[in-house]
Protein backbone atom coordinates (compact mmCIF):
# COMPACT_ATOMS: atom_id res chain seq x y z
CA UNK A 1 0.00 0.00 0.00
CA UNK A 2 1.14 3.51 -0.60
CA UNK A 3 -0.10 7.04 -0.38
CA UNK A 4 1.19 9.51 -2.96
CA UNK A 5 0.28 13.17 -2.92
CA UNK A 6 1.65 14.98 -5.91
CA UNK A 7 1.59 18.67 -6.77
CA UNK A 8 -1.47 19.37 -4.69
CA UNK A 9 -2.81 22.82 -5.44
CA UNK A 10 -5.73 24.85 -4.15
CA UNK A 11 -6.77 28.45 -4.34
CA UNK A 12 -9.73 30.45 -3.09
CA UNK A 13 -10.39 33.26 -5.49
CA UNK A 14 -6.95 34.65 -6.21
CA UNK A 15 -5.42 33.42 -2.96
CA UNK A 16 -3.34 30.26 -3.21
CA UNK A 17 -3.78 28.25 -0.03
CA UNK A 18 -1.89 25.08 -1.01
CA UNK A 19 0.89 25.54 -3.51
CA UNK A 20 2.06 22.39 -5.26
CA UNK A 21 2.64 20.22 -2.23
CA UNK A 22 3.94 16.69 -2.70
CA UNK A 23 4.67 13.90 -0.24
CA UNK A 24 4.37 10.17 -0.13
CA UNK A 25 4.18 7.24 2.25
CA UNK A 26 5.58 4.11 0.68
CA UNK A 27 5.34 2.06 3.85
CA UNK A 28 3.43 2.14 7.12
CA UNK A 29 4.52 4.68 9.73
CA UNK A 30 3.80 8.23 10.75
CA UNK A 31 4.05 11.16 8.40
CA UNK A 32 3.99 14.61 9.93
CA UNK A 33 2.47 17.65 8.31
CA UNK A 34 3.84 20.65 10.14
CA UNK A 35 3.44 24.34 9.66
CA UNK A 36 2.44 27.63 11.16
CA UNK A 37 -1.21 28.52 11.56
CA UNK A 38 -2.77 29.08 8.15
CA UNK A 39 0.10 27.38 6.31
CA UNK A 40 -2.30 24.99 4.55
CA UNK A 41 -2.08 21.83 6.69
CA UNK A 42 -5.79 21.34 7.29
CA UNK A 43 -6.69 22.23 3.70
CA UNK A 44 -4.10 19.68 2.49
CA UNK A 45 -5.56 17.04 4.78
CA UNK A 46 -9.10 17.84 3.63
CA UNK A 47 -8.06 17.49 0.00
CA UNK A 48 -6.13 14.31 0.72
CA UNK A 49 -9.22 12.77 2.29
CA UNK A 50 -11.46 13.92 -0.55
CA UNK A 51 -13.44 16.39 1.52
CA UNK A 52 -12.35 19.29 -0.62
CA UNK A 53 -11.77 19.30 -4.34
CA UNK A 54 -8.28 20.37 -5.31
CA UNK A 55 -7.52 22.73 -8.16
CA UNK A 56 -4.58 20.63 -9.27
CA UNK A 57 -2.39 17.69 -8.43
CA UNK A 58 -3.20 14.13 -7.58
CA UNK A 59 -3.79 11.94 -4.55
CA UNK A 60 -3.49 8.20 -4.94
CA UNK A 61 -3.90 5.30 -2.58
CA UNK A 62 -2.43 2.12 -4.01
CA UNK A 63 -2.43 3.81 -7.40
CA UNK A 64 -6.15 4.60 -7.30
CA UNK A 65 -8.22 7.44 -5.93
CA UNK A 66 -8.31 7.97 -2.19
CA UNK A 67 -11.68 8.29 -0.56
CA UNK A 68 -13.66 6.42 2.07
CA UNK A 69 -14.88 3.94 -0.54
CA UNK A 70 -11.34 2.91 -1.47
CA UNK A 71 -9.67 3.20 1.91
CA UNK A 72 -10.68 2.56 5.50
CA UNK A 73 -10.04 6.00 6.94
CA UNK A 74 -9.99 7.10 10.56
CA UNK A 75 -9.96 10.84 11.04
CA UNK A 76 -9.54 13.00 14.10
CA UNK A 77 -10.25 16.50 12.85
CA UNK A 78 -8.60 19.57 14.26
CA UNK A 79 -12.01 21.16 14.74
CA UNK A 80 -13.55 18.57 16.98
CA UNK A 81 -17.14 18.28 18.01
CA UNK A 82 -19.98 16.05 19.07
CA UNK A 83 -23.73 16.50 18.92
CA UNK A 84 -24.19 18.47 22.13
CA UNK A 85 -27.52 17.02 23.22
CA UNK A 86 -27.62 13.51 21.81
CA UNK A 87 -26.53 10.55 23.87
CA UNK A 88 -22.88 9.65 23.52
CA UNK A 89 -23.54 6.01 22.76
CA UNK A 90 -26.12 6.88 20.11
CA UNK A 91 -23.76 9.13 18.25
CA UNK A 92 -20.78 6.79 18.58
CA UNK A 93 -22.91 4.00 17.11
CA UNK A 94 -24.04 6.35 14.34
CA UNK A 95 -20.47 7.17 13.36
CA UNK A 96 -19.53 3.50 13.59
CA UNK A 97 -22.39 2.51 11.30
CA UNK A 98 -21.48 5.24 8.84
CA UNK A 99 -18.02 3.68 8.74
CA UNK A 100 -19.50 0.30 7.97
CA UNK A 101 -19.28 -1.33 11.39
CA UNK A 102 -22.45 -2.54 13.03
CA UNK A 103 -24.06 -4.99 15.41
CA UNK A 104 -22.01 -6.91 17.95
CA UNK A 105 -18.72 -6.03 16.29
CA UNK A 106 -19.51 -2.37 16.77
CA UNK A 107 -20.61 -2.83 20.38
CA UNK A 108 -17.47 -4.85 21.15
CA UNK A 109 -15.23 -2.23 19.59
CA UNK A 110 -16.94 0.59 21.46
CA UNK A 111 -16.51 -1.32 24.71
CA UNK A 112 -12.85 -2.08 23.92
CA UNK A 113 -11.92 1.50 23.08
CA UNK A 114 -13.96 2.90 25.94
CA UNK A 115 -11.86 0.82 28.28
CA UNK A 116 -8.58 1.63 26.54
CA UNK A 117 -9.27 5.34 26.54
CA UNK A 118 -10.77 5.30 30.02
CA UNK A 119 -14.12 6.80 29.07
CA UNK A 120 -16.29 3.87 30.20
CA UNK A 121 -17.91 5.86 32.97
CA UNK A 122 -19.36 8.29 30.42
CA UNK A 123 -20.62 5.63 28.04
CA UNK A 124 -21.78 3.05 30.53
CA UNK A 125 -22.46 5.05 33.71
CA UNK A 126 -24.62 2.31 35.18
CA UNK A 127 -21.92 -0.32 34.81
CA UNK A 128 -19.30 2.05 36.14
CA UNK A 129 -21.43 2.85 39.19
CA UNK A 130 -22.06 -0.84 39.86
CA UNK A 131 -18.36 -1.66 39.55
CA UNK A 132 -17.53 1.18 41.87
CA UNK A 133 -20.07 0.02 44.44
CA UNK A 134 -18.86 -3.56 44.16
CA UNK A 135 -15.25 -2.50 44.67
CA UNK A 136 -16.27 -0.48 47.68
CA UNK A 137 -18.19 -3.39 49.14
CA UNK A 138 -15.22 -5.70 48.62
CA UNK A 139 -13.03 -3.23 50.42
CA UNK A 140 -15.38 -3.36 53.38
CA UNK A 141 -17.23 -0.17 52.55
CA UNK A 142 -20.74 0.51 53.77
CA UNK A 143 -22.25 0.10 50.34
CA UNK A 144 -23.57 3.59 50.52
CA UNK A 145 -22.44 4.12 46.98
CA UNK A 146 -24.63 1.27 45.87
CA UNK A 147 -27.59 3.31 46.97
CA UNK A 148 -26.45 6.25 44.95
CA UNK A 149 -25.65 4.10 41.93
CA UNK A 150 -29.14 4.68 40.59
CA UNK A 151 -28.65 8.40 40.76
CA UNK A 152 -25.59 8.09 38.56
CA UNK A 153 -27.44 6.05 35.97
CA UNK A 154 -28.24 8.94 33.68
CA UNK A 155 -25.47 9.25 31.08
CA UNK A 156 -23.79 12.57 30.60
CA UNK A 157 -24.47 14.51 27.47
CA UNK A 158 -21.39 15.52 25.47
CA UNK A 159 -21.62 19.16 26.50
CA UNK A 160 -21.18 18.06 30.11
CA UNK A 161 -17.84 16.40 29.35
CA UNK A 162 -14.49 18.10 29.68
CA UNK A 163 -12.70 19.07 26.48
CA UNK A 164 -10.16 16.31 27.02
CA UNK A 165 -12.82 13.65 27.46
CA UNK A 166 -14.70 14.88 24.40
CA UNK A 167 -11.44 14.55 22.51
CA UNK A 168 -11.00 10.97 23.69
CA UNK A 169 -14.53 10.17 22.53
CA UNK A 170 -13.69 11.59 19.12
CA UNK A 171 -10.51 9.55 19.00
CA UNK A 172 -12.59 6.49 19.89
CA UNK A 173 -14.88 7.28 16.95
CA UNK A 174 -11.88 7.54 14.63
CA UNK A 175 -10.71 4.08 15.74
CA UNK A 176 -14.05 2.28 15.38
CA UNK A 177 -13.50 1.05 11.84
CA UNK A 178 -9.98 -0.23 12.64
CA UNK A 179 -8.68 2.15 9.95
CA UNK A 180 -5.77 1.42 7.65
CA UNK A 181 -5.13 5.14 7.19
CA UNK A 182 -5.35 7.22 10.34
CA UNK A 183 -5.28 10.99 10.06
CA UNK A 184 -4.72 12.81 13.32
CA UNK A 185 -4.93 16.58 13.26
CA UNK A 186 -3.47 17.97 16.49
CA UNK A 187 -4.25 14.78 18.44
CA UNK A 188 -2.59 15.79 21.70
CA UNK A 189 -3.64 19.40 22.01
CA UNK A 190 -5.82 19.98 25.05
CA UNK A 191 -4.95 16.69 26.73
CA UNK A 192 -3.43 16.47 30.19
CA UNK A 193 -0.19 14.44 30.49
CA UNK A 194 -2.01 11.31 31.71
CA UNK A 195 -4.45 11.28 28.81
CA UNK A 196 -1.72 12.28 26.35
CA UNK A 197 0.20 9.18 27.46
CA UNK A 198 -2.87 7.00 26.89
CA UNK A 199 -3.18 8.33 23.35
CA UNK A 200 0.56 7.99 22.70
CA UNK A 201 0.40 4.37 23.72
CA UNK A 202 -2.44 3.77 21.24
CA UNK A 203 -0.50 5.52 18.48
CA UNK A 204 2.52 3.31 19.21
CA UNK A 205 0.29 0.24 18.92
CA UNK A 206 -1.11 1.44 15.63
CA UNK A 207 2.39 1.97 14.28
CA UNK A 208 3.35 -1.52 15.38
CA UNK A 209 0.20 -2.85 13.69
CA UNK A 210 1.41 -1.44 10.37
CA UNK A 211 -1.01 1.46 10.01
CA UNK A 212 -0.45 4.50 7.85
CA UNK A 213 -0.71 7.59 10.01
CA UNK A 214 -0.68 11.23 9.00
CA UNK A 215 -0.20 13.52 11.94
CA UNK A 216 -0.38 17.25 12.17
CA UNK A 217 0.83 18.85 15.37
CA UNK A 218 2.47 21.88 16.83
CA UNK A 219 4.04 19.76 19.58
CA UNK A 220 7.38 19.05 17.95
CA UNK A 221 8.67 16.66 20.59
CA UNK A 222 5.63 14.44 20.00
CA UNK A 223 6.11 14.53 16.25
CA UNK A 224 9.78 13.73 16.71
CA UNK A 225 8.87 10.78 18.87
CA UNK A 226 6.64 9.16 16.27
CA UNK A 227 7.40 10.44 12.79
CA UNK A 228 9.77 9.06 10.24
CA UNK A 229 8.96 11.56 7.52
CA UNK A 230 7.84 15.18 7.60
CA UNK A 231 6.71 18.08 5.49
CA UNK A 232 6.93 21.59 6.87
CA UNK A 233 4.51 23.98 5.24
CA UNK A 234 4.94 27.69 5.24
CA UNK A 235 2.75 30.17 3.44
CA UNK A 236 1.08 27.42 1.42
CA UNK A 237 4.37 25.95 0.25
CA UNK A 238 6.40 22.96 1.44
CA UNK A 239 9.69 24.39 2.70
CA UNK A 240 11.08 21.14 4.06
CA UNK A 241 10.05 17.65 3.08
CA UNK A 242 11.51 14.19 3.43
CA UNK A 243 12.87 11.68 5.93
CA UNK A 244 13.32 13.24 9.35
CA UNK A 245 16.76 11.70 9.99
CA UNK A 246 18.06 12.81 6.63
CA UNK A 247 16.69 16.28 7.13
CA UNK A 248 18.39 16.48 10.47
CA UNK A 249 21.63 15.21 9.00
CA UNK A 250 21.50 17.84 6.30
CA UNK A 251 21.61 20.55 8.96
CA UNK A 252 24.69 18.88 10.57
CA UNK A 253 25.45 18.27 14.22
CA UNK A 254 25.54 21.78 15.60
CA UNK A 255 24.16 21.46 19.14
CA UNK A 256 26.90 20.89 21.67
CA UNK A 257 26.46 20.41 25.39
CA UNK A 258 29.63 20.33 27.46
CA UNK A 259 29.78 19.77 31.20
CA UNK A 260 33.10 20.35 32.94
CA UNK A 261 34.27 21.21 36.46
CA UNK A 262 35.68 24.68 35.85
CA UNK A 263 34.98 27.83 33.90
CA UNK A 264 35.84 27.45 30.18
CA UNK A 265 34.12 30.57 28.89
CA UNK A 266 37.40 32.07 27.60
CA UNK A 267 38.26 28.87 25.81
CA UNK A 268 34.85 28.84 24.10
CA UNK A 269 35.36 32.42 22.95
CA UNK A 270 38.86 31.61 21.64
CA UNK A 271 37.42 28.81 19.51
CA UNK A 272 34.80 31.23 18.10
CA UNK A 273 31.90 29.12 19.36
CA UNK A 274 28.51 30.67 20.12
CA UNK A 275 27.58 30.30 23.78
CA UNK A 276 23.84 29.85 24.23
CA UNK A 277 23.65 29.30 27.99
CA UNK A 278 25.66 28.22 31.01
CA UNK A 279 24.63 26.74 34.33
CA UNK A 280 27.10 25.39 36.88
CA UNK A 281 29.77 24.69 34.26
CA UNK A 282 27.32 23.01 31.90
CA UNK A 283 27.50 24.87 28.61
CA UNK A 284 24.99 24.83 25.77
CA UNK A 285 26.84 25.77 22.61
CA UNK A 286 26.10 26.23 18.94
CA UNK A 287 28.95 24.96 16.72
CA UNK A 288 29.30 25.06 12.96
CA UNK A 289 29.62 21.29 12.73
CA UNK A 290 31.54 18.20 13.80
CA UNK A 291 34.92 19.79 13.10
CA UNK A 292 34.51 22.76 15.43
CA UNK A 293 33.03 20.58 18.14
CA UNK A 294 35.83 18.05 17.98
CA UNK A 295 38.40 20.81 18.03
CA UNK A 296 36.97 22.08 21.33
CA UNK A 297 37.07 18.57 22.77
CA UNK A 298 40.70 18.17 21.71
CA UNK A 299 41.62 21.51 23.34
CA UNK A 300 39.89 20.52 26.58
CA UNK A 301 41.78 17.22 26.68
CA UNK A 302 45.08 18.88 25.84
CA UNK A 303 44.59 21.38 28.63
CA UNK A 304 43.78 18.58 31.07
CA UNK A 305 40.28 19.83 31.80
CA UNK A 306 38.14 16.88 32.92
CA UNK A 307 35.09 16.48 30.66
CA UNK A 308 32.00 15.19 32.49
CA UNK A 309 29.72 15.34 29.48
CA UNK A 310 30.29 16.02 25.82
CA UNK A 311 27.16 15.75 23.62
CA UNK A 312 27.35 16.85 19.98
CA UNK A 313 23.91 16.46 18.42
CA UNK A 314 21.75 17.39 15.44
CA UNK A 315 19.18 20.17 15.43
CA UNK A 316 15.90 19.24 17.07
CA UNK A 317 12.76 19.31 14.93
CA UNK A 318 11.66 22.34 16.89
CA UNK A 319 14.86 24.14 15.89
CA UNK A 320 14.52 23.11 12.27
CA UNK A 321 10.92 24.35 12.27
CA UNK A 322 11.85 27.66 13.83
CA UNK A 323 14.82 28.02 11.50
CA UNK A 324 12.68 27.46 8.42
CA UNK A 325 9.55 29.38 9.27
CA UNK A 326 10.26 31.11 12.56
CA UNK A 327 11.62 34.43 11.37
CA UNK A 328 8.98 34.96 8.72
CA UNK A 329 6.27 33.67 10.99
CA UNK A 330 7.22 36.13 13.70
CA UNK A 331 7.21 38.92 11.13
CA UNK A 332 3.62 38.09 10.13
Amino acid sequence: MSLVVKDLYKKYGEKVVVDHISFSMEKPGVYALLGTNGAGKTTSIRMTLGMLDSDGGSITWNGGPLNFDTCNIGYLAEERGLYPKYSLLDQIRYFGELRGVSGKVLDDRIAYWAERLKVEEYLYPEKAAEAEAKAEAENGGSGARKKTAKKKKKPKSPDQLSKGNQQKIQFLIAMLSDPELLVLDEPFSGLDPVNADILKEVVREQIAAGKYIIMSSHQMEVVEEFCTDITILHRSKAVVTGNLNEIKKSYGRVNLTVKVEQDITDLIKQEGIELLSEKEFEYRLKVTGDEQGNRLLKTLVEKGIPVVRFDLSELSLHEIFVKEVGEEASEQ
Binding site: I73, A77, E79, G81, P84
Partner: peptide, 16 residues
Protein backbone atom coordinates in the same frame (compact mmCIF):
# COMPACT_ATOMS: atom_id res chain seq x y z
CA UNK B 1 -26.18 24.38 11.23
CA UNK B 2 -25.87 22.36 14.43
CA UNK B 3 -23.56 19.91 12.69
CA UNK B 4 -21.55 22.74 11.24
CA UNK B 5 -21.20 24.81 14.38
CA UNK B 6 -20.58 21.73 16.52
CA UNK B 7 -17.56 21.00 14.30
CA UNK B 8 -18.97 17.64 13.32
CA UNK B 9 -18.94 18.01 9.58
CA UNK B 10 -15.36 16.94 9.00
CA UNK B 11 -15.92 13.71 10.89
CA UNK B 12 -19.10 13.14 8.90
CA UNK B 13 -17.66 13.98 5.52
CA UNK B 14 -15.06 11.21 5.72
CA UNK B 15 -17.93 8.73 6.14
CA UNK B 16 -20.78 9.96 4.02
Amino acid sequence: TEEKTSKLVESLLVSV
